[in-house]
Design a protein around this nucleic acid. Structure first.
Lengths: 134, 134
DNA sequence: TCTAAAGTATACTAGATGGGTAAACAATAG
DNA sequence: CTATTGTTTACCCATCTAGTATACTTTAGA
């Protein structure tokens, strides 16, 4: 039921970038030190944020990362799903094949969990990174 | 971010018991067959529901399980926490010691996750097993 | 054009968790 | 007493977690 460590680090990395002057490129080393994230691990996580369109990167001397959108347009859900894939409270909610009852006609547990999951996603979507800036 | 298989089975087992005539003892074998749960695994999960006061058991000939409370008094949260322990979106929300920043003064990620977690728990508590009966 | 400084890709690993099985035990109805 | 039912403990293997290592690519600037 918990987000993993990589996601926790990703949220902190995005928040750190959101706090920098707009357009300023920050290198991995700095994020790593400020947010206390093992640099190798951080460097492995960043590409998933890039693929999701949350950050942009620049290579070579003077390279680093910048947000690809305004902080207000990046939700917690965006970051969580970028790192972990789709939020699913139960494997069945991704594919009935995972269910030992094969989603037997209207499994009511399934329906209730789908409801809770929708609320959870809405909550995660309700938090964006603008809310943390001054 | 997902509940585990044991919890899924537990929810189905409790639902099955909730649908039986009040006070009727159902043996593990029957729950296992009807809900398509490996019996050995089910037998291992049930004690956690007993410790949580959700079901009662009877040993020996004619033994089995019964709900220990009315279905309306058992929430999804009760079952989830009985099997998995406290719901926590992030390890830091259980203990700051897990945080690489040691919960550095008012980590805002922490605060936002705590908010989402509270909403999630409320949603899980909002579903009980009476809603599925007739 | 060379080089040092950045990020990228891929592979590896120790330990924990997940999902289950097995075996020996304890209680109880008849 | 015995067959039937749940309990406890131990074990197992595959996958995931969190992280490290190595080799590579890109690029600014001397």
């Amino acid at each position: 039921m918990t987000i993993n460590q990589a996601t926790d680090y990703a949220l902190r990395a995005v928040l750190y970038l959101a706090r920098q002057p707009q357009g300023e490129v920050t290198e991995a080393q700095v994020i790593s030190e400020q947010e206390v994230i093992p640099i190798r691990f951080l460097l492995k996580i960043m590409p998933s944020l890039i693929k999701a369109g949350i950050v942009k990167s620049f290579r070579g001397v003077g390279g680093g990362y910048v947000l690809a959108k305004a902080p207000g347009e990046i939700s917690f859900l965006d970051v969580v799903e970028a790192v972990e894939g789709p939020v699913a409270l139960n494997r069945c909610l991704i594919d009935y094949a995972f269910c030992s009852k094969k989603g037997a006609p209207n499994c009511q547990i399934h329906q209730a969990l789908a409801d809770v999951q929708a609320k959870l996603k809405a909550e995660l979507q309700g938090h964006n990174f603008a809310e943390f800036i001054n």
